[in-house]
Design a binder for these strands. Structure first.
Length: 291
DNA sequence: AAGCCGTGGTA
DNA sequence: TTACCAAGGCT
């Protein structure tokens, strides 16, 4: 067997990080907020913001009562600020339709904005101790190596990836949820993308990748996202002006952040369309609700 | 379903 | 320095 469930669960209990959203008294809301923030953003950058949010908005209805502009401002530089809008929208639905209680059912979670296949199951498992295949980039890499003997995971295939993990999960809810956390932690701490620490791996002896002689990744090349010069960069620069200002600003101020006017205006428009910015009646630009 | 959506750390 | 990487989701 390529994955020794009990060994992994014990390993996680031993060396798993003491992250605040893993504390036994952390609410399901706290878990949900952490999962959204952690989408594509490292733990070290999420932790301080998460602590601020929990102190300020301890329940979904508290966040829902804020303007989206204030939420975007508090999101800071975590990146992908549309996540903040979706979390605000999810909090609103939870407050209004679910009695301010984060749902525990995967399908109900999936219906909320910003919650996809990973996050829905992560909340079910980590907040409610349910058995659900939690598949993120770490787990995909661990399974690719330990189970399939490959150097890394190929392109994601939701159905197949979840079936792979499902097959590893113990039958009972509690140990299954523990294993889900352990698989993620193994990928984050040991079975990393670059320079995996195989000498410290709790399942080294059973790992199919080791048995295969640690072959290099042989799948299709993974697309590399550019950043410099993209709309993503320009949108970030524009939004950063508003995050750093008390109130609305004139367009001339925004024009300073990027030289190419066509791209600049396209990005400004897309921010308005997304609801990350608003235009005031007198033509200034502001975070939504902050004027 | 391939590409877009931020930001910063690391090798 | 460039390139890769980081608890994805949406269209």
């Amino acid at each position: 067997m390529a994955v020794d469930t009990e060994v992994l669960i014990d390993w996680f209990a031993d060396v798993g990080r003491d992250l605040p959203w893993r504390e036994p008294d952390c609410s399901a809301w706290g878990v949900l907020v952490s999962e959204i923030m952690l989408q594509q953003t490292p733990v070290s950058r999420v932790q301080p913001i998460w602590l601020e949010w929990m102190a300020r908005w301890p329940v979904p209805s508290a966040l829902a009562a804020e303007t989206t502009g204030e939420v975007v401002r508090a999101w800071g530089k975590l990146g992908y600020p549309r996540r903040a809008l979706r979390l605000h929208a999810a909090a609103t639905v939870i407050a209004q339709e679910h009695g301010d209680v984060v749902p525990s059912d995967v399908d109900t979670l999936l219906a909320l904005p910003g919650i996809g296949a990973y996050t829905a199951r992560a909340v079910a498992a980590f907040a409610y101790g349910k058995r659900a295949p939690v598949v993120d980039t770490n787990v995909r890499r661990v399974v690719a190596r330990a189970v399939h003997g490959a150097g890394d995971a190929g392109p994601a295939s939701n159905t197949r990836d979840m079936a792979d993990v499902e097959a590893l999960l113990p039958a009972e809810d509690a140990p299954a949820a523990k294993l889900s956390a352990a698989l993620m932690e193994l990928g984050a701490l040991i079975c990393t993308a670059r320079s995996p620490k195989c000498a410290e791996c709790p399942i080294y002896a059973e790992c199919a990748w080791q048995h295969n002689g640690r072959p290099e990744y042989a799948g299709p090349a993974k697309p590399v996202q550019k950043f410099a010069g993209t709309d993503r960069q320009v949108r970030g620069l524009l939004l950063d002006v508003l995050r750093g200002s008390e109130g609305p600003v004139e367009k001339a101020r925004l024009d300073l952040v990027w030289h190419e006017s066509g791209q600049r205006d396209r990005c400004l428009d897309s921010l308005l369309v997304d609801g990350l910015l608003e235009q005031t009646p007198d033509g200034l630009f502001a975070l939504p609700g902050e004027h």
